[in-house]
Write a protein that binds this DNA or RNA. Structure first.
Length: 592
RNA sequence: GGCCCCAUAGUUCAAGGGAUAGAAUAGCGGUUUCCUAAACCGUAGAUCCAGGUUCGAGUCCUGGUGGGGCUACCA
């Protein structure tokens, strides 16, 4: 409707003033709540065409629209704003066509192949709150891009090798006494993470001991036996030393077992998992190739670098002096392998904004190497999750652990639900499934409603609520709708068609106006890569429905056609809520 | 030092250069013989500072202040 009005305005400007208007000057938007009307035309940008005052121009256009657009029933002018009233009949017919088309999806299919890389954990420690934001964003982004008609593949690069793993391995060798997670009853990833923290703690005290003996910080780092041991393990690993590789495989398998259960709890999955241990060699080949082409250069100590000062960046290390690979080495390899596997049009790396520089460099190097597809790789850079006491530090074990957080959320959901006591006719298993859905909805919505680009604050004690602008609020609205529909069915009210001869009340009209925006919200979310738009829309829709539900009876309505309309309106709202939340990876419950 | 990001009610978040800056939560006050009160209604409360561009600035530009990140032979 907005588009139609825009076109009519363009015609009107031509006829009334003889001007060919630039469409970007024709601004049609929803009328703000506090003013009368449904759709507003901002006339300020059009004054240059009319040569008249804002008010006169608005009246000219208002009168023209009233005559030539059947859906417009009246208009009013406030300052430079032309507020158009859309007729009840026009809104109703718009709802009917939405309702009839059901869940059909009329988004234009772009059909591009898109890779979304997310999660990308290190195998030396369990997942924490930062990973949760990453996983939820990556998963939601994938669903949104799929919904917009693309072929989307979810990938994960597991950073399963490197000095950090060797630190955990060394600590386990030194302090582990040969124990396994099963011996201690710990989850595998937590078990390995414990040794990583133990390494860092021991390393720190070793350093301060050396510094106390008179060394500088640099000298101490140089002389550290622990760090030397970790480096030694890394060299042995790259050389394929049997014992080292076996230990590495054993410890990684413990970690994967732990990750799998966390991923399952989060409800995320992947189409293909890449392992850095597979891709780093290709990375080294690529570095070799770049050396031969003269794009990279070798320093006297044997390390390999790229000089990016032409692009006003600095030098970047690509291979250490001892020949071992670094982060960038493997990312080069992974990127090339992915392109060979998928021939993607676009690849989004869901990685925190602390790595903006890394991805800038990655793209630049790939371009210098002559890969044209490098234009299609993008860093989906999301903000940090901060705690009241500051940044999370996994080296020091100062994190909000993912598993703990998930368990807490579900526990809280259970406590609240039991207090409300609405589910007594369910067996334990069914109840637990619902508690899980509610707890996860609270967590997921809390994180996804925030603009991904922005840093966000997480206060473990206060942050996650179950009332107000929350996941459970939306679930509750959905459960109410389902409950009404179930009762309607039991009473034999089935809606075959909706009368075109109804007068909607204000709440019904507001709901219809919101429902028709859904497709556009999904489109914008896909274009701007922003799941929070969908989260905020779903909330607004749920709130609007709750007002309608509170103010009017649905099943108690005696007028047959009005009752049917309200049932259809409820059903359609429920469908949209469900679809929107599905795109965010949030499950609905029929009861709660 | 250099580069990048951020700054909105007590708090956590919204606001495609457009009208009187929205929500939630915490506070205060209400609504349940009626389809789920995890709801609904009312009340109070905010654009870091100084300039500039514009008919119009929370939004764009410049400078300042405050916070975060990167600038690692960690990933």
């Amino acid at each position: 409707m907005e588009k139609t009005i825009g076109n009519i305005v363009a015609t009107a400007l031509k006829i009334l003033y003889g001007s060919d208007a630039d469409m970007s000057n024709i601004q049609v938007q929803s009328t703000r709540k506090e003013f009368e009307g449904d759709i507003t035309l901002v006339v300020f940008p059009l004054l240059k065409y009319s040569g008249k005052s804002p008010e006169d121009t608005a009246y000219d256009l208002g009168n023209y629209l009233l005559k030539s657009s059947p859906g417009i029933s009246s208009f009013n002018v406030v300052k430079g704003f032309l507020n158009l009233q859309v007729s009840n009949a026009a809104w109703l017919s718009e709802f009917i066509s939405l309702w009839q088309s059901g869940s059909a999806n009329d988004l234009s299919k772009k059909g591009q192949t898109i890779l979304v890389e997310y999660s990308s954990p290190n195998t030396n420690k369990p997942l924490h709150l930062g990973h949760i934001r990453n996983n939820l964003l990556g998963f939601a982004l994938s669903r949104i891009l799929t919904e917009s008609g693309n072929s989307v593949f979810k990938t994960n690069i597991v950073n399963d090798r490197g000095i950090h793993i060797c630190k955990s391995m060394l600590a386990w060798k030194l302090f582990g006494k040969g124990k396994s997670p099963a011996d201690t009853g710990m989850k595998g990833d937590h078990f390995v993470g414990k040794y990583y923290v133990e390494f860092e703690t021991a390393y720190k005290s070793e350093l301060s001991e050396l510094i106390r003996k008179g060394m500088t910080a640099e000298e101490a780092a140089e002389k550290s036996e622990l760090m030397a041991g970790a480096r030694d393990l890394l060299r042995k690993w790259e050389a394929g030393d049997r014992e080292t590789v076996d230990l590495w495989m054993k410890m990684n398998s413990w970690v994967y077992e732990g990750f799998d259960s966390t991923y399952k709890a989060l409800g995320v999955d992947f189409d293909k998992i890449y392992y850095e241990s597979d891709t780093y060699k290709l990375g080294r080949d690529i570095v070799e190739e770049g050396l031969q082409k003269g794009i990279f250069y070798r320093k006297e100590d044997g390390s390999v670098w790229v000089n990016l000062s032409d692009d006003s960046l600095d030098e970047k290390l690509l291979l250490r002096a001892d020949g071992t690979a670094v982060y960038m080495t493997q990312d080069l390899g992974t990127a090339v392998e992915r392109y060979n596997d998928y021939k993607f049009d676009h690849q989004y790396y869901v990685v925190g904004n602390e790595q903006n520089y890394h991805f800038q460099v990655l793209k630049l190097i790939l371009k210098r190497l002559g890969y044209e597809w490098a234009e299609g790789i993008h860093h989906f850079s999301y903000g940090m999750v901060n705690l009241p006491e500051g940044k999370m530090k996994s080296r020091e074990g100062k994190v909000v652990d993912a598993d703990d957080l998930i368990d807490n959320m579900i526990d809280t959901a259970r406590e609240m639900a039991e207090e409300l006591g609405k589910l007594h006719d369910y067996v334990e298993e069914e109840k637990e499934a619902i508690y899980r859905k509610i707890g996860m909805a609270a967590l997921k919505y809390f994180i996804l409603k925030v603009d991904p680009r922005k840093n966000m604050m997480f206060n473990p004690r206060e942050s996650i609520d179950f009332n107000g602008n929350t996941g459970p609020f939306i679930q509750y609205t959905y459960a109410r709708i389902k409950s009404v529909l179930k009762l309607a069915k039991e009473k034999g009210h089935s809606v075959a068609e909706i009368s075109t001869d109804l007068l909607m009340n204000e709440k019904e009209a507001d709901l219809v106006k919101l429902l028709r925006k859904y497709q556009n919200v999904v489109k914008e979310a896909a274009e701007s890569l922003n799941p929070s738009l969908i989260a905020n829309y779903a909330y607004e829709l749920a709130r609007e429905y709750n007002q309608f539900y509170h103010d009017y009876t649905i099943l108690g309505e005696h007028d047959h056609s009005l009752r049917n309309f309200r049932i259809a309106l409820s059903e359609y709202t429920g469908n949209i809520i469900n679809k929107a939340m599905y795109l965010l990876g949030i499950e609905m419950s029929e009861r709660m």
